[in-house]
Lab assay of single mutants.
Amino acid sequence: MDTYKLILNGKTLKGETTTEAVDAATAEKVFKHAANEHGVHGHWTYDPETKTFTVTE
């Protein structure tokens, strides 16, 4: 398992979190669910070198 990071750049919610996942696709599902639960919808990017997802509203 690897550690993946999410950076939230929402209009009303900003922050960072991490998750352990077997691959980037699994981490993305976890992060998108969490972002949706917090009402953050926007443009997603992924940097494979740093294993970091970013969502920007």
Rank of each mutant, 00 (worst) to 15 (best):
F31R: 00
T26R: 05
V40Q: 03
N36C: 10
Y4H: 02
G42V: 02
T17S: 11
T56A: 05
G15H: 15
K11E: 11
K5G: 03
T18V: 09
K51Y: 07
M1E: 07
L8Y: 13
L6G: 02
K51I: 02
K11S: 13
I7Q: 04
H43D: 13
V55E: 01
A34K: 13
E57W: 07
T54N: 04
E28G: 06
L6R: 00
V55A: 03
T54C: 08
T50S: 10
D47S: 07
H41L: 09
T12Q: 11
L8N: 02
E49N: 11
T54D: 03
G10W: 06
K14S: 11
T52C: 06
T26H: 13
E57T: 05
H43I: 14
N9L: 14
F53K: 00
T52N: 02
K14H: 11
T19I: 14
H41I: 13
K5Y: 11
L8G: 02
K32R: 15
A27L: 01
M1S: 09
A25Q: 12
H43V: 14
E20L: 14
L6V: 04
T3E: 08
E49R: 09
A35N: 03
K51H: 08
H38F: 15
L13Y: 15
K11Y: 12
M1C: 10
T26A: 15
T52E: 04
L13D: 06
A34Y: 15
T19Y: 12
H38M: 15
A34G: 04
I7R: 05
H38S: 12
H43G: 06
L13F: 15
A34D: 06
E28Y: 15
H38R: 13
H43A: 12
A27D: 00
K5H: 10
H33Q: 15
D23I: 02
K5W: 08
A24Y: 13
L6P: 02
L6M: 07
K29V: 11
M1P: 08
E20M: 14
A35C: 09
E37T: 12
F53Q: 00
K29H: 10
L13I: 14
D23G: 03
T18W: 14
F31H: 01
A35Y: 05
T17Q: 14
F31I: 01
F53D: 00
T50D: 04
E37D: 09
E57P: 05
Y4I: 01
N36S: 14
E16I: 07
E28S: 06
G15D: 08
I7M: 05
N9V: 13
N9S: 08
F31K: 00
M1T: 11
D2F: 14
I7P: 01
A24N: 04
V22H: 11
E57G: 04
E37V: 13
M1K: 13
A25N: 09
A24I: 08
E28Q: 09
P48F: 07
L6Y: 02
L8V: 10
A27K: 00
D2L: 11
T12I: 12
T45A: 10
K5A: 04
G42E: 01
F53E: 00
N36F: 13
E49L: 12
A24T: 06
K51Q: 06
E37P: 03
T12G: 10
H33L: 15
L6D: 02
V30Q: 09
H43S: 13
V22K: 14
H38C: 14
W44G: 00
G42Y: 04
E57K: 03
T26Q: 12
F53S: 00
K29R: 12
E28N: 04
K29L: 12
P48R: 07
T56K: 05
H38K: 13
T19L: 13
L6E: 02
K51D: 01
E57Y: 06
L13T: 13
Y4E: 01
K32H: 10
V22E: 12
V22S: 11
K32M: 11
E20W: 13
T3N: 05
T26L: 05
E57A: 06
Y46A: 00
T3G: 04
L13C: 15
I7E: 04
T3F: 07
A34S: 09
A24E: 07
L8C: 09
D47K: 04
L13N: 09
I7K: 06
V55P: 01
V55L: 09
A35V: 10
A34R: 10
F31D: 00
W44R: 00
E28W: 15
E28A: 09
E57H: 05
E20C: 12
G15C: 15
D2M: 12
H33Y: 09
T52S: 04
T52R: 02
G10Q: 04
A24P: 10
W44E: 00
M1R: 10
N36T: 11
F53N: 00
K14W: 13
K51W: 04
A35I: 08
K29P: 03
T26F: 07
T45Y: 09
Y4V: 01
T50V: 05
V40Y: 06
V40A: 04
T54F: 07
